[in-house]
């Protein structure tokens, strides 16, 4: 008998442990769902953690109103298959009620407006733990994130005063009004995620596979030409063969030129690529510490 787990099985086991720990330590947890592969992986792992019971918490989608239609369609099907409740936090509503103001100009994005809509949704639903699919390999500020990350009553992160996290003992104790962000797939890398998706045959939105789409280039990033982005006079949209490595808001998610139309080809492409997946995210390019700044305010 070989008492040995592969690294993917060990990562899976660690994530399942975290999901169960959240269910046990918190009263009203929620899984933040963006429609991207990481949050799809999260639902897959959560399903495994509680089988044969259903996932014992709802999914929260902060909808910028600028999501790809493919994302929304996929989301609704997934919800039905899992039999879980979906809660939508709407950025459009936050704009309409004056909670936030829409950015103006060519690079206008609703990305940072998500923070207010997210915090509002967490507060009004009294969620005490919000699980997110952030990974430590994604970005330098995320490399310092805990599995159980404490947020004060304003939903803010204080990176200099984080609780030490030892062994596999997680301290979710908190005062009234505070909440936790929990990151069950902290230790996964992009390649781990893809290998696991391939191994498990997890279904993904078509956006991840190579397809033809009208796109244009801005600051070296390929963006989808849609009615939510205003083209500059110098920019022209043309048909390209692309796929998306991450999926977020249509205004800030860059595509890559790719012929990879199967999971095998995607894994091969990810394994040989020389640019990080967030390299295509214009929201991270705003400054050197853009992610840390957003995280402190409550971004996930």
């Amino acid at each position: 008998m070989n008492y040995h787990l592969t690294h993917l099985k060990e990562l899976e086991s660690e994530s399942i442990f975290i999901f169960r720990e959240v269910a046990a330590q918190f009263e009203n947890p929620v899984l933040m769902f963006s429609g991207g592969k990481d949050s799809i992986l999260m639902t897959h792992l959560a399903m495994k953690a509680f089988y044969p019971a259903k996932i014992p918490f709802p999914l929260l989608h902060v909808d910028t109103g600028h999501n790809f239609p493919e994302t929304m369609e996929f989301r609704d099907k997934l919800i039905e298959r899992l039999g879980v409740r979906l809660i939508v936090g709407s950025v459009q509503e936050a704009i309409d009620t004056g909670l936030v103001q829409e950015e103006k100009g060519f690079n206008a994005s609703r990305n940072s407006l998500q923070i207010a809509a997210l915090l509002e949704a967490l507060e009004s639903n009294k969620f005490d733990a919000a699980m997110g699919g952030a990974r430590r390999d994604e970005e330098k500020a995320r490399a310092k994130e805990r599995f159980f990350s404490h947020r004060d009553e304003f939903g803010q992160w204080n990176p200099k005063n984080q609780r030490p996290e030892l062994w596999n003992i997680f301290n979710g104790n908190k005062n009234m009004g505070e909440h936790f962000r929990v990151f069950p797939i902290s230790n996964w890398t992009e390649l781990d995620v893809w290998q696991y998706i391939l191994m498990e045959g997890i279904e993904l939105p078509s956006l991840y596979y190579s397809h033809k789409r009208k796109c244009f280039k801005r600051d070296g990033v390929i963006l989808a030409a849609t009615d939510v982005i205003q083209l500059k006079p110098t920019e022209t949209a043309e048909e390209m063969t692309v796929r998306f490595r991450t999926i977020g808001d249509m205004t800030c998610t860059g595509a890559t030129l790719s012929e990879a139309d199967t999971l095998e080809k995607i894994v091969q492409e990810v394994a040989t690529t020389r640019v990080t997946e967030r390299g295509g995210r214009s929201d991270d390019k705003r400054s050197e510490t853009a992610m840390e700044d957003r995280k402190k305010k409550g971004y996930f």
Binding site: H4, L5, T6, H7, L8, E10, Q195, L198, E264, V267
Partner: peptide, 10 residues
């Protein structure tokens, strides 16, 4: 290869 990846440990 995927086969190798399935033999890796941590």
């Amino acid at each position: 290869t995927l086969e190798e990846y399935k033999k890796m440990d941590l």
